[in-house]
Design a protein around this nucleic acid. Structure first.
Lengths: 198, 198
DNA sequence: CTTTCTTAACCGACCAGTCGGTTATTATAG
DNA sequence: CTATAATAACCGACTGGTCGGTTAAGAAAG
């Protein structure tokens, strides 16, 4: 008994990995065909174009990431500790795979920003919702939840992306861990300054 | 023409712009030929392969950037103000061009990190020397020049790269300006803490 | 003349995407 | 339950076009 979506998922998974490592343009349908064992006609049966497959891959990756975010930030608990937990998770993830692939969203963002308006908007939305989640946690941590939380959340995400990029370039997960410590220090100094936590 | 040709520079310039906006793989020799008016054979006369052209473009871009860095950090002066001057220059640059193109080194870094070892090493060296320049300035600003300066400089560069990426994605130079303020605040808090400057 | 530069014509490889056809699975009717 | 009709899943050879790269011959300069 075959589930109709069996092969579709396999295509999605293989394409995700390849696009993450090689980028969208560099990854050919033939690459996906070869890596997955699925035939070309089947790929175009489920996705009417490479572009549509690209969008589906992006959705697929974001769904997985959003689930992880939710599992950390949704349960009740100390917000600042949740932020730290999230940062540690990122560090741990890239330490495990040796920084191969880098951030799927950051990669596509740099590749497509000036190239494909549809991808740009989708990615911008993804980063926007990511920032908003961090912002929410920071607001719950700060006594005066003003516009500072938004600015700080944006900076945290930006720094994280930059650190992932440099760590990947240098094949050095330690660089990411080091930068994450600085991010924590940055946030910590703000929390201290504003709310007097110690 | 007497001097080694005019056309070589023109190829380099056009290729730099296109690769910066579209990426290396997405930019075909044909694109460069069409944008510059120079014929295909001429391109392969001066650069024996696309790869060699890519390396030359990278060198060309780094030379320009290194000159700017030198003109800021070399003259005698208050080191911390030089760092700020540099950050402001970056903000100003992307405000002027609306974040189009993004950082040439960051773009290539993400595109080539897992793809081409030669590019990876060259880019890693470039970022390394960039970090070291910032580190030097921080060391001149801090009373106790320890390993902290290196960590901070790495974080500054990483954050800057991440901010440029997000600003480009959102077509919002203001986001970069905002993040640079946070970078300054981050460094400032460290200087205060360590050396008691106010 | 020789050397350097420039050009257009050309090539094989590879790309995304198509198409006609062959199975599986399901729905329907007797 | 069986026979049949309809639909969805799957396959691989093929196409038109573009890619990076080559070649050979002309133009320009010393």
């Amino acid at each position: 008994m075959r589930h109709p979506s069996d092969k579709r998922d396999q295509i999605l998974k293989t394409a995700s990995e390849l696009i993450c490592e090689q980028g969208y343009h560099r990854t050919s349908i033939e690459d996906i065909v070869q890596a997955s064992g699925i035939k070309k006609g089947t790929v175009f049966h489920y996705f009417k174009s490479k572009e549509e497959l690209g969008f589906a891959v992006l959705d697929h990756q974001y769904r997985g990431f959003a689930d992880e975010l939710a599992s950390i930030f949704s349960p009740p608990g100390e917000a600042w500790e949740q932020v730290q937990e999230f940062l540690d998770l990122v560090v741990h993830h890239y330490a495990k795979n040796g920084c191969r692939g880098g951030c799927p969203f950051g990669n596509l963002a740099l590749e497509m920003s000036d190239q494909h308006e549809g991808f740009r908007q989708k990615l911008n939305t993804i980063f926007g919702s990511w920032v908003r989640i961090v912002q929410g946690a920071l607001e719950r941590s700060l006594l005066d939840a003003g516009p500072r939380a938004s600015v700080m959340a944006t900076f945290v995400v930006a720094s994280l992306e930059g650190a992932i990029m440099l760590a990947r370039l240098g094949k050095d997960p330690g660089l990411l861990a080091q930068c994450v410590l600085e991010i924590k220090k940055y946030v910590w100094l703000q929390l201290e300054g504003v709310s007097g936590i110690s």
